[in-house]
């Protein structure tokens, strides 16, 4: 359970005490809620339902973006400050470090996603009618959206960790991670939106399965590049 020690330390002492990251996360929570609030009106029928689904989808993806930028910052900062060396000198497996760091980001981000989705749902219910929102945004769909965002965060988090392990400066890591995030966000959001609309949700399940496979692969690559010898050689 040493991965949990590392994860809890990240959450308790880095995420919650880093004002910049808190502010960034707050902005990414407020933006999707603002979109729900500022939408002037939703037409009836399929087009309106699609808009509601799109609003729910963006409510989970915006906080996910905050998390990915968070991990890019914390990993490279650890390398630059040398705080990774004492961790690498401790009797823990390489995978515990990778998993701990990843969870340290994923847990608070998923909390932010859930809070944003709940707020967006409640606000949409007030603005567009609770009955209609409940009919379109079913519990199954909301659950699927959260799972999708979890898979997305793990995917991009793993990619960001791989990038952070290979580069020396936090600026380079942030830039590369930003590029990865922008492309992946567009792809996943598009895929997710299309998948929700077709084939009674089976396409959404397919997207989830693909993401699971991708996550397993990305985590394995992250574990390999985060082997002590590889990382310490670049500090």
């Amino acid at each position: 359970m040493k991965w949990w020690l590392i994860a809890w330390r990240e959450i308790r002492w880095e995420v919650f005490l880093d004002r910049a990251s808190l502010l960034r996360t707050a902005v990414f929570i407020v933006i999707p809620i603002f979109f729900v609030f500022s939408n002037r009106g939703i037409p009836g029928g399929g087009a309106g339902d699609a808009t509601l689904i799109a609003l729910a989808l963006q409510s989970v993806f915006f906080p996910s973006l905050a998390g990915v930028s968070l991990i890019a910052a914390t990993f490279t900062a650890e390398k630059e400050n040398g705080t990774l060396v004492p961790l690498l000198a401790a009797p823990i497996r390489d995978f515990d470090i990778v998993l701990g760091k990843l969870l340290g980001m994923v847990v608070p981000v998923m909390v932010a996603c859930a809070v944003t989705l709940a707020a967006a749902y409640a606000l949409a219910g007030v603005r567009y009618g609770a009955e209609r929102v409940a009919r379109v945004l079913t519990p199954e769909l909301l659950y699927a959206l959260l799972v999708l965002s979890l898979l997305y965060v793990v995917t991009t988090g793993s990619i960001t960790m791989i990038v952070a392990a290979r580069v020396r400066s936090s600026r380079a890591a942030q830039q590369l991670a930003g590029l990865v995030i922008a492309v992946s966000a567009a792809v996943f959001a598009g895929l997710g939106f299309v998948a929700i609309q077709v084939a009674d949700g089976w396409a959404l399940v397919a997207v989830g399965v693909i993401l699971v496979f991708f996550d397993v692969g990305a985590l394995e690559v992250a574990r390999r590049v985060w082997q002590r010898g590889e990382v310490i050689g670049r500090i």
Partner: peptide, 19 residues
């Protein structure tokens, strides 16, 4: 190479648990 946001007691306890 210390975690600057942590207080001393929490820092040493964290490493004590790792070991």
């Amino acid at each position: 190479s210390l975690y600057e946001r942590m207080p001393l007691s929490a820092y040493l306890e964290f490493f004590a648990r790792l070991y």
